[in-house]
């Protein structure tokens, strides 16, 4: 810059050489913006194909069962060998809450438990990877029909799968299977905590070496909800030991008390006092 060139912002015109220099900087900035924008947009992980049918209510008829999680069992028929087939749709509530509150209110209104009753509800479907959930919201007046007497005495097809040691991620099913993208992992951690603290049934997501996934419902050893115990282990890889039981199309893990712990990272205090009793995760199935 020579002596005659001096930029003063409040003057109408910048000196010619300075103006040209500024133009070059602006071009560089546009190139920077384009380069960074393109890179960041293209480097994002693929979003899942999960669907949340927002604003679209679907009527679903099925048998309501409160155990292992509040769910609707939709009968799809018997196969040629006489086996009954069901689609189990766990129920979730509006926002970051479970469905128990809505069901409890409806049961209170009707003055009987809906367990093992055939009910028709309207709600919002959310689904991904072969798993389907139904959001019921009291503002939608979800209950269409209920048979007062239990019409269905069959218990779920139960198969004991033994004790398993697995590494996976605890996630809230509503976000993962439909509402949010991404619905798991660190960015979603706080939301998953809020959902699970709000009563949503936690799901354990595992995958094999081919990237194929399985999803298991989590209960404690006694078969009761363990949402608050899971708070510190949500949305990151954790190891756990559990008794696995298959109920129709969902597997439930009865998690051994104190067996959950983080698996990775330079966690400063990775092992908590309550976890010391647990063995190393060398017993995973693969």
């Amino acid at each position: 810059m020579n002596n005659s060139e001096f930029y003063i912002g409040w003057q109408p015109q910048a000196p010619e050489r300075l103006a040209k220099h500024s133009q070059s900087i602006v071009i560089i900035l546009f190139l920077l913006i384009a380069g960074v924008g393109t890179s960041l947009a293209l480097l994002q992980k693929r979003f899942s194909t999960a669907r949340f049918e927002f604003g679209q209510l679907t009527e679903v008829k099925g048998i309501y069962q409160s155990f292992p999680v509040p769910a609707l069992k939709v009968f799809t028929g018997n196969d040629a060998f006489g086996n009954s087939s069901f689609i189990t749709m766990p129920l979730v509530g509006y926002g970051k809450s479970g469905a128990e509150g809505v069901i409890a209110q409806l049961e209170k209104n009707y003055r009987f438990s809906f367990d093992n009753h055939e009910i028709t509800v309207k709600g919002t479907l959310l689904y991904s990877d072969g798993k389907t959930l139904l959001q019921i919201d009291q503002h939608d007046h979800p209950l269409v029909k209920v048979r007062e007497a239990p019409v269905y005495g069959r218990k779920a097809t139960i198969a004991e799968l033994g004790t398993v040691k697995l590494t996976g991620e605890v996630l809230d099913p509503k976000c993962y299977f439909g509402v949010m993208k991404p619905g798991h992992g660190k960015p979603h951690r706080d939301c998953a905590i809020r959902c699970i603290e709000g009563g949503m049934s936690p799901v354990f997501y595992v995958r094999n070496k081919n990237g194929e996934a399985n999803y298991y419902l989590l209960l404690d050893e006694a078969g009761t909800k363990m949402n608050s115990e899971l708070k510190d282990y949500i949305a990151e890889p954790v190891w756990l030991e559990a008794r696995a039981v298959q109920y129709d199309d969902w597997i439930v893990l009865y998690v051994r008390r104190g067996s959950i712990r983080r698996t990775g990272g330079l966690s400063w205090f990775k092992v908590k006092d309550g976890d010391i009793s647990c063995g190393k995760p060398n017993g995973s199935l693969e």
């Binding site: 198969a159 799968l161 398993v164 697995l166 590494t167 996976g168 991620e169 595992v206 995958r207 094999n208 070496k209 194929e212 996934a213 399985n214 298991y216 990151e236 890889p237 696995a244 298959q246 597997i251 983080r262 698996t263 990775g264 990272g265 330079l266 966690s267 995973s284 199935l285 693969e286």
Partner: peptide, 19 residues
């Protein structure tokens, strides 16, 4: 660097199948 090193990696497991 530390944040990069601690990125967790979820181990693969054998998926459970009843039959």
């Amino acid at each position: 660097l530390l944040s990069w090193l601690v990125i967790p990696n979820q181990a693969a497991v054998k998926l459970l199948q009843s039959h």
